[in-house]
Design a protein around this nucleic acid. Structure first.
Lengths: 259, 259
DNA sequence: ATTGTTTATGCACGTTCTTACCGATTCATG
DNA sequence: CATGAATCGGTAAGAACGTGCATAAACAAT
């Protein structure tokens, strides 16, 4: 493997491996990077202090937050349901929709009105399962290797499967949303997939919880345009909303709820 | 099996199994993780101290709150669970397995020991979701249009996806199992898909609840042969079992349980 | 060019953690 | 109550750990 990396590069590489396999061993890393275990331990300690991993005896584990999907889904379910309710208003009978991975998108599918008939394609098995609950939705699964952290198929095979689709709407899972940087994501392969999905659809819908506003991640999915509809929570700051509106995107605010 | 897990990972795996089956036995865990029972006992003691499980003589039980699944799958879950437990003994570390649609197969995936590392391909989203609960399983989704009755992708696209696989084992969902007629099914497209899946694998495993024995359906999936392992329930009539055995297939009986 | 500072790394040391084994004790069951 | 299995506490070996220190490289300012 690469022998002399800058410490920052090495830490990025460790993060990549954490994302991929969920765990790293100090000994393995030391051998792979040809540095002493002390150096690796220092890296892991720093990363743990920065909240990038969980340090355990023998190595480090990926954080539960960015790992098992089941945890994320439960966390802010109430808020997501409200957001989802606003997003479903964009869906019309007979549409063909691609639904990207993401807990918010799962909430949207669960919130679909029972009578709506759609053709729904998705790369996330959990969303496919949810969609099958609806009698009038035709479900199409995008195949491929499933990335454990995304919880959905991404990569070459999944991108090939996308080629068969020309959806009326692409519902994208958001990672970061910023007026200038556009839509950005953390995981390279995931971003590459989202980018293709967004490009093939006639329109793009992004439902975005407030914590993702003004977040900028390393990889760009798409810039904002009039092809996009952004669904924001009720408590999203007006300043940010108007900033986003200036890009030409349609802004949809979720109704505030008492409770 | 799971060769060397970090202690923290092992405890996470134990928690996963607790969520799944509600109980764990110290001896089983020790064998599964290849550590001494002392180590497992220490894990269980720690977890109990942290309020993650209830320590009992012989193992541990899930806390009532942490087991929402038990209700869902209902009573037949017990039978399928036992059948599944027998079936998983055919799976070895490092195998590539194709898992066909079916509720019994879903139970098998849920019953997989936590440490087992597999590559698992499936055309049923619900199985993919269940497989993602296991940290060391690489999941591959077979894409395509999802048949609402089967709950899985079948048809042209799914069959194309199968072309990329040469699994060591194909776990088929059974519809009808008869010594002379072989394995048969009701839905034409589903049978066509199963047929291809079975043909591509080095070996075939069928876990079959007793109600499917001696049933003959209109379409033939495969005839019985020495390439096949049939897992039967404990209460399956001996006459039928010996009849099946004469076809050359390997018969695996689930252990009867008390309570 | 020189000097001082910061940063990254490796090494040595004592400490802590994990685990398997052993003996004493407790538990389930006939 | 007798018996064997399961459990608990202690112990020891080995691995992993953190700290302090020294070295070397990179950088800034003089």
């Amino acid at each position: 493997m690469a022998s002399d990396l800058l410490s920052r590069e090495r830490q990025d590489a460790i993060r990549a491996q954490l994302r991929q396999s969920g765990r790293v061993l100090a000994g393995d890393l030391a051998r792979a990077f040809k540095v002493s275990e002390d150096t690796i331990r220092r890296d892991l300690r720093e990363m743990a202090a920065a909240g990038l991993c969980e340090r355990v005896y023998g190595g480090a584990l990926a954080l539960p937050a960015e790992q098992p999907f089941s945890v994320r889904t439960g966390i802010s379910r109430g808020r997501k349901q409200v957001l989802a309710a606003a997003a479903v208003s964009c869906l019309k009978d007979g549409m063909t929709v691609f639904v990207d991975a993401g807990s918010t998108n799962l909430a949207i599918v669960q919130a679909l009105p029972p009578g709506l008939s759609l053709t729904l394609a998705t790369n996330m098995p959990a969303i496919a399962v949810a969609a099958l609950e609806h009698a009038r939705i035709e479900v199409i699964a995008i195949g491929g290797r499933i990335d454990r952290h995304v919880g959905a198929a991404i990569g070459a095979q999944a991108e090939r499967d996308l080629d068969m689709l020309r959806p009326d709407l692409c519902i994208l899972g958001a990672c970061g949303l910023d007026a200038r940087a556009g839509l950005t994501g953390l995981v390279y392969d995931d971003v590459a997939f989202k980018k293709i999905a967004a490009a093939r659809a006639a329109a793009v819908l992004v439902a975005c919880t407030s914590d993702k506003l003004e977040a900028v991640h390393p990889f760009v999915i798409a810039s904002l345009s009039d092809r996009m509809t952004l669904t924001l929570e009720a408590d999203a700051p007006d300043a940010i909303a108007t900033g986003l509106k200036e890009t030409g995107a349609t802004i949809l605010r979720a109704e505030p709820v008492a409770g």
